[in-house]
Nucleic acid binder design. Structure first.
Length: 787
DNA sequence: GCGCAGCCCATTTTT
DNA sequence: TGGGCTGCGC
């Protein structure tokens, strides 16, 4: 756990951090809110002038320091609430910050109009100056799904093959540019070849043009339009620069280039910008976050002070040591030394098991045994790398009748029926919202098939007018006839009537009216889909959500920017979520299953990500371990049922990076000890490891194995009289009768990892196969299929 | 316009 | 393995 900042080119950072910045002589420094802060936190609160980087390790009381700082600025009258810009990434973080400041300073917090997410604040600014980028102030904010659909239209309109060039692909590329703050004019010409044979930038332009016609902005636009406005309207920028005398940014390691530029522009006048973050917890690189922003802070803001919060109040020494040891394998980091004065307790557990089912079973056994010892289910969490890993746990929970909750998953406002209902409201608000029109014009079916929609689309595109207008013209000039015409006409009349009703009815009543009259509710009532009852419930939820707003506008803005919805978790449930979802949370007991190569780090990362992606995976592991307060239990399975096939993967390289002194290995005797078919298989995959350069000569899990393994009673729990893990293994072994191979010499076979080959030698279940592409290898027969 | 069979694919997801 | 999408047939 050495504090060895490997970035030796930036020595001044650590040096600075060592220095104690003189505490300002300030009467407020004796204020009650400073009590109980440690030295670093106190400094972070009182050092208000000039740029400041607060490097806050996991569990070091970051939020406390940050909210106290704001309270201090306000109560010292350094600024009015309206002069403070405080940005977060999530609505949840913004809400929490507001609450906690409120506890310190009371109602004054209500005046903090510029406390919010990057996107909500950028949206506020953009609404004020929309005309400067060709929008009207009531522009629609598009979500990801709208973006993709619009991209698809742009691709089709450009006459490209929509199978080769997908909407999703174009949207991803445009997003990437926007994350980097690039308008079509600023994109490097070479990047035109990233998509559609050199037409990428043209498509980006076309997409932006469509957005203007639709009077819409996507998430990325909120920031990029702000930048455009600031850069070409000095007076507007100066206004905000003057207004924001203090700035505070949470989770700075997650900012993308556009957000960074936005902050830098705004901070130029007062330069009182405080960025809080932890480079070791940067896990959103794949979404455009640039760890570089935090690594480079000092250069960007000359004269910056750096404060490290390193005293951890969350975890035991072993957990901290494990996390610190692991993360020290990363090259690009500022380096911190987390420490704690908590008592040493249980070491970090590492357990190897036979397969995924057994992993779920053993973790659930642990959970039940903790529960019997009086621990609440709320206090335990299982964190996974990817959601496919959740199924095994959910199945096990259901079998045992253990209450659990999954955090994440499809969100309320992203569900089909919610989005449909919202599309109706959007269309009622703005008849120009073609994306809403496309979505619900024929849902429920009104006989408006692809042909009619096609005609409307082309007519509208040719004249650059909204589709509703195009529809009306097509009806009037007789280009549409028959049933299609009548149905379309009736639909438009309905929409217009609803729009008129906006004046007379509350948003809630209007929503109910629309869902009723449009036939949308009936559409689900008549549906035979097993999902229909749930969808109807969700529609009621939408009505409920709308009723909390005074205007349709307010509700729609909420929907666009606050994609979350209170689902109201019950108490007494085990938490199940991804590492990403767990960031910022903490639990007494944390289970980290699936530490195998290909699962964690993920296969995708191994295949194409390179070093930086691997480092991000490692940070993810760091985030996972540091969620644990008392007990952290890592496991890996020798075999895993994945995509309908059995796969065997070596333990994660991250396991070998954990410091030996702080971990304890519990491996089953059957797995590593006795010579059984199972252990042979393990020996075999160990051989494969050597092939692939994975296994260092003396890895942790091999040491565990050499030690003969410990008993399968785990972490001091009483082992069940008949260990449930036996069932799982015996079942698997039973399929392979010992001694006799089902394959013959010369037979063609297939192996998951090595592909096709021919058996050259057999010895029991150990077969030697000459693979077509991978050469000759010894493998166990249960990894082979007849080829 | 709908239903079904076959096909392809398969991380993480703050706004 | 299984969910989501597509293309075809009614």
């Amino acid at each position: 756990m050495s504090n060895k900042p490997s970035n030796s080119h930036k020595p001044s950072l650590s040096q600075r951090a060592m220095q104690t910045v003189p505490r300002p002589e300030n009467t407020a420094s004796s204020a009650a809110y400073l009590e109980g802060l440690n030295d670093a936190q106190r400094e972070a609160v009182l050092n208000t002038q000039g740029p400041l980087l607060m490097l806050a390790g996991a569990g070091t009381g970051k939020t406390r320091a940050l909210t106290t700082r704001l309270a201090h600025i306000l109560s010292s009258r350094l600024a009015w609430p309206s002069q403070i810009l405080a940005v977060t990434f999530t609505n949840k973080a913004a809400r929490e910050m507001k609450q906690r400041i409120g506890k310190l300073i009371g109602d004054e917090v209500e005046g903090m109009r510029w406390l919010g997410t990057f996107h909500s604040i950028a949206a506020q600014i953009l609404r004020r100056h929309a005309e400067l980028v060709g929008l009207k102030s009531n522009f629609t904010i598009l979500d990801t799904d709208d973006q993709i659909r619009l991209c698809k239209q742009v691709i089709v309109d450009a006459g490209l093959d929509e199978k080769r060039w997908t909407g999703r692909g174009l949207a991803a590329m445009i997003d990437d540019w926007k994350n980097r703050g690039l308008t079509p004019e600023k994109v490097n010409k070479d990047e035109a070849w990233l998509f559609a044979d050199g037409q990428a930038i043209e498509l980006y332009k076309a997409y932006q043009g469509r957005l203007i016609t639709l009077n819409a902005a996507d998430f990325g636009d909120l920031l990029v339009h702000n930048l455009t406005i600031f850069q070409s309207n000095g007076d507007v920028l100066a206004n905000y620069q003057t207004r924001f005398s203090y700035m505070l940014v949470d989770e700075y390691q997650d900012t993308n280039v556009a957000q960074y530029l936005w902050l830098r522009l705004l901070a130029q006048k007062h330069k009182n910008i405080c960025c809080v973050g932890d480079d070791d917890q940067s896990i959103y690189g794949w979404r455009g976050a640039e760890v570089e922003n935090i690594l480079r802070f000092e250069k960007d803001f000359p004269g910056a002070d750096i404060i490290r919060l390193e005293q951890n109040y969350r975890s035991t020494p072993s957990i901290l040591a494990a996390a610190s040891g692991l993360i020290s394998a990363n090259q690009d980091r500022l380096g911190k030394t987390l420490w704690t004065n908590r008592e040493e307790d249980e070491k970090v557990n590492i357990r190897g098991v036979w397969d995924g089912e057994e992993e779920a079973r053993s973790i659930c056994d642990d959970i039940e045994s903790e529960q019997q010892k009086g621990r609440s289910l709320n206090d335990m969490a299982i964190l996974v790398r990817a959601s496919f890993q959740m199924r095994a746990f959910e199945e096990r929970f259901n079998t045992l009748g253990l209450a659990y909750r999954v955090v994440g998953g499809p969100r309320f406002y992203e569900r089909e029926e919610t989005r449909d209902a919202i599309a109706y409201l959007r269309l009622v608000r703005s008849h120009a919202d073609d994306l809403a029109f496309d979505r619900i014009a024929n849902k429920p079916a009104r006989g408006l098939g692809g042909k009619t929609m096609q005609t409307i689309h082309q007519y509208a595109r040719a004249r650059n007018i909204p589709k509703i207008m195009a529809s009306k013209m097509l009806i009037e000039n007789g280009e549409l006839t028959g049933a299609g015409k009548n149905k379309l006409s009736a639909f438009i009349q309905m929409v217009e009537r609803w729009s008129a009703e906006t004046q007379n009815q509350s948003p809630r009543d209007l929503t109910e009216l629309i869902l009723e009259e449009s036939g949308y509710t009936d559409y689900w009532k008549n549906s035979k889909s097993p999902k229909a009852p749930g969808k109807l419930d969700n529609l009621k939820e939408v009505v409920q959500a709308v009723s909390e707003y005074e205007t349709l506008e307010a509700f729609l803005d909420h929907v666009a920017l606050v994609a979350e919805h209170n689902e109201g978790f019950a108490d007494g449930q085990v938490w199940l979520m991804t590492y990403h979802a767990a960031k910022g949370l903490e639990f007494p007991v944390v289970f980290l299953p699936g530490w195998e190569e290909g699962v964690f780090p993920s296969q995708r990362t191994l295949d194409e990500g390179g070093l930086s992606a691997l480092e991000e995976e490692r940070r993810l592991a760091y985030v996972g371990i540091t969620r644990a307060e008392e007990s952290c239990r890592i496991s890996f399975a020798a075999n895993r049922h994945k995509y309908g096939r059995w796969e065997s993967a070596p333990p994660s390289r991250f396991i070998d990076e954990l410091p030996e002194d702080h971990v304890e290995i519990y491996s089953e005797s059957g797995l590593y000890g006795n010579r059984t078919a199972a252990s042979d298989t393990l020996l075999n995959f160990e051989a494969e490891l050597v092939d692939q350069d994975y296994a260092a000569s003396n890895t942790i899990w091999q040491r565990g194995k050499k030690a003969g393994g410990k008993s399968s009673s785990y972490a001091g729990h009483t082992a069940p009289s008949s260990p449930p893990l036996i069932e799982g293994r015996s079942k698997t072994i039973a399929s392979q009768a010992p001694g006799q191979s089902q394959f013959n010499k010369g037979q063609r076979v297939f192996h998951q990892k090595f592909g096709y080959g021919k058996i050259t030698h057999s010895e029991g279940q150990k077969l030697t196969v000459a693979f077509d592409h991978s050469g000759e290898k010894k493998v166990m027969e249960n990894y082979l299929e007849a080829g």
